[in-house]
Simulated scan of single mutants.
Amino acid sequence: MPLLWQTRLRSFAASAMAAARAGVEQRRSADPPIGRREGPIVLPNNKVLQSILKEYALRSVIDDDGDLAVRWENFSIYFFHYGRDDEVLQARLYLNRRFEVELRPTLALVLDDWNRSKLFPKAYTVLPDDGLVGICAEQAFDFEGGISRQQLKFTVGMWLQNLQQFADWTEEHV
């Protein structure tokens, strides 16, 4: 014979499950089907991104390679498109500061601390053609199927904020 607390627990679980099922059914009738979004759908192309950046009062440029960039005093953020339909968007920060190659292992350890303690953005070192070590941070997402413009604006705004916080962090730690 089950103990009284086990009986109560089973009764509570059954009640909770019934309430959850009722809530799901109610939401199904009120929400648009999965995969459908409110408002027009966009892909994150340069034209849409330039418009969003302008709304954030940021001046953007298209470089010689056709990449969209926003420049600050200590860093630049580039927007890259990947995928068959350019549905993957990446925002990548490049610090203007460069370091001697001998410092790369030390820099990697410092960036490991960032990556361990922060969820976003991902940070790493790069070795460009000039022979000096650079520091990058990036955020990316696959927008296959599109996204509402409002949600894209929010996402880009969060990425810019996160990348700027990383740049501030590097000023203190590197």
Rank of each mutant, 00 (worst) to 15 (best):
A69W: 11
Q165N: 12
A30Q: 15
A167K: 08
I41P: 01
I34M: 13
D168R: 12
D85A: 10
D142V: 00
L109P: 01
T106M: 10
D31V: 00
R71I: 09
S15W: 02
G146R: 03
F80L: 13
E144G: 04
L109G: 13
E55K: 00
I34Y: 12
A30K: 14
M158C: 13
A22F: 13
S15Q: 04
G35K: 01
F12Q: 15
D65M: 12
R97A: 09
I147G: 03
L152M: 02
L3K: 06
I135K: 03
S51C: 12
E138D: 10
G145A: 08
N162Q: 11
L107R: 05
R116N: 13
H173F: 06
G157F: 12
V110H: 06
A108P: 02
R8A: 02
E25M: 09
L68W: 11
V101T: 12
G35T: 06
F80W: 07
P44E: 02
S51Q: 14
L103E: 08
K122Q: 11
K47P: 01
E171L: 09
C136E: 15
F80R: 07
Q150A: 13
A108Y: 00
M17R: 11
V61S: 03
Y94W: 14
V110L: 14
F154T: 08
K54L: 12
V126N: 07
P33G: 07
Q151M: 14
R36I: 07
V88G: 04
E172T: 07
L53P: 15
Q165E: 14
E171D: 15
D67Y: 08
L163P: 02
S117P: 02
H81K: 00
G145V: 11
C136W: 04
Q139M: 13
N46Y: 08
T125C: 15
C136V: 08
P33K: 14
Q151N: 13
I135N: 03
N46A: 10
L160G: 05
G35H: 04
D31H: 01
K153I: 04
I135Q: 03
